[in-house]
Design a protein around this nucleic acid. Structure first.
Ligand code: SF4
Ligand code: SF4
Lengths: 154, 154
DNA sequence: CGATATAAGACTAAATATATCTTATATATC
DNA sequence: GATATATAAGATATATTTAGTCTTATATCG
């Protein structure tokens, strides 16, 4: 009953992009370092976010990721579900056919209710709000010009 | 983000016992067959329910399980958490020290809120209500005298 | 072209979930 | 006390999921 790391990392990634605003290109490396996510793992997560239409991926030198929508339009729920699929607290919520009793089951109804409630809470939250309220995900953002600059030369 | 099978099975077990009422002894085998749970798996789950003080286990011939409290006193939350531990939607909810940023993190606050909401919903639900609303968990209960009788001779 | 950065997917390792099996122990009944 | 029955406790096995890494290919800039 907990979020996977991939899901958590996806949120961090979008949140970091949200702090730069819609359309600003940020390198994978910077995101990875700033949000403490393994670089190659981030690559996979980004691909899922890309398929979901949340970010755009630019290849090549000076490539990176950028948000396709304004942070205020992106909900926590959409990011999470882009990574881990639709939230389902019990198997029978997402796949009622997995239990032949689901049409009669009183517990099933509770799960449906709780599941809907949870999804609603996550949908109410957008990334503009998240980005504005305090710092999240590690080191404060040092430069204010929105330019993508590596933190440290290697 | 979903309940384990052990958790689901624990609920079925308590629900079946709830249909017999507090204190009625029901054999492990009957519960296992009626709720479609592997017998030996049920044994482990029952031990966890026993440690949590929800059921009592009686050994020996004609042994079995019985509820220690009235079904109306037993919440869905208590049964679930007896099996899978305290619900924590994200790692940082249950262990804030797992992320050094949790005190500042805006996402963390959302998780805390959602987690508390979910637990509240599950706590509002008791097993007397669940048992009274429609049938759950497989075959209807054939005899009404509360007597523990095997379904089929083997 | 050469340097840089991501894409895509194979691969590995670890953790967890699920289930079974074996030996021990407790109780009722004869 | 002997026997049959039922659960206890824990070791073991298997499958699935999660988490992370590595390799090769591709795209873009200068
Ligand atoms: S018994 Fe009820 S709660 Fe459990 S899986 Fe079936 S429908 Fe869902
Ligand atoms: S970044 Fe925020 S939400 Fe993510 S683990 Fe840390 S405290 Fe929790």
């Amino acid at each position: 009953m907990r979020l996977t790391r991939a899901g958590e990392y996806g949120i961090r990634c979008v949140l970091h992009l949200a702090r730069h605003g819609k359309g600003t290109l940020v390198s994978r490396k910077e995101i990875a370092v700033r949000t403490d996510v393994p670089t190659h793992f981030l690559a996979k997560i980004a691909q899922q976010l890309s398929r979901a239409g949340i970010i755009e991926i630019l290849q090549g030198a000076n490539g990176g990721y950028r948000l396709l929508a304004d942070p205020s339009e992106i909900t926590l729920l959409s990011v999470i579900e882009a990574i881990i699929g639709e939230i389902s607290l019990n198997d029978c919520v997402g796949r009622p056919e997995s239990c032949h009793n689901s049409t009669l089951c009183s517990v099933h109804r509770i799960w449906n209710k709780a599941n809907q409630q949870l999804r609603a809470t996550l949908q109410e939250t957008d990334f503009a709000t998240l980005a504005s309220e305090d710092a999240c995900c590690l080191t404060p953002f040092p430069e204010a010009d929105g330019h993508n600059r590596p933190i440290e030369k290697k």
